[in-house]
Write a protein that binds this DNA or RNA. Sequence first.
DNA 1: GTGTCTGCAAAGTCTTTGCACCATA
DNA 2: TATGGTGCAAAGACTTTGCAGACAC
Lengths: 160, 160
Amino acid sequence: MDENCNRRLIPCCMNLEGGIRNRGLRMTIPRQLVAGVLDTADGYLSADEIYTRIREDYPGIGLATVYRTLVLLDEMGIVNRYNFGDGCARFIIAEEQTSEHSHQLVCEKCFKVVKYSDFVKDELDLFRRVESVLSEKHGFEINRHIVQFYGICPDCKEEK
Amino acid sequence: MDENCNRRLIPCCMNLEGGIRNRGLRMTIPRQLVAGVLDTADGYLSADEIYTRIREDYPGIGLATVYRTLVLLDEMGIVNRYNFGDGCARFIIAEEQTSEHSHQLVCEKCFKVVKYSDFVKDELDLFRRVESVLSEKHGFEINRHIVQFYGICPDCKEEK
DNA sequence: GTGTCTGCAAAGTCTTTGCACCATA
DNA sequence: TATGGTGCAAAGACTTTGCAGACAC
């Protein structure tokens, strides 16, 4: 254990350690740190942002390790990767946001995410109907859908 | 005019030439070709795919020119840029798909797009309600939303 | 102790930029 | 003919890969 690391090492995503060990992999400090940073983030983070945050407490970490860990966590379904078109991928803890159904309100400036529960049932009802009609009509095998509202959050609005 | 170019030079997006000239810019063959390829595409294309298609008829074109033209067409609102997370941006002609409201059924393998008209009114009604509640509740200034269904199109399903 | 993981550096991709020549208007 | 545009090559940014030493179990 490394005394350079002050960050809390037990991320809330309890499936992390089990998932890692089930695959015959090892639980390491960098893996816990990457998951921990994402777990306490309130929005999407880029690999570099994760790297920078971890370095505050654990200066030895390498950016390549962050990337490798993100690939692993993505494959395990613990984080979701998303690309907003600003040149780098961004990551968010998966939680209840399943891979088939993602509804979010995202700030275009800071990538903060607000999860909302209003209308979720209405949305799902509508989307089930849309999916069944579309898949029948166009022969698509539909796997998932994305609903995202983009805007500027109160904090970023103030900054302007 | 270059006789190496056999491709039809008049893309359907008639606002192209006017928009270009209004900005004091010049109408050139590469610009017409990029717009033309996107205009006849049935889905999202990457810069490299556009470049490859143009080179069949106009071998002299440079990839940098394709990128520069895509930036221009994006700024003009003639094409929309989108990022599916596979490492490169993809482009589609804007048409009726406005920047505030985008509903699509996208093939995850070939990026073909099916535009659907079913439920569009239901979706818009619901989304207006969701937007007004969310913006009030969370203080967001909401600019646009995206609805995308992802799946495998009939052609790609067959190939498997 | 063994096999995995890490950090560093180098390589790989996609995209943008600089510059001399070319083409549009 | 005077800008603006183009193609090429180089540079930039993000991400992945290779490898020797370090670490988990």
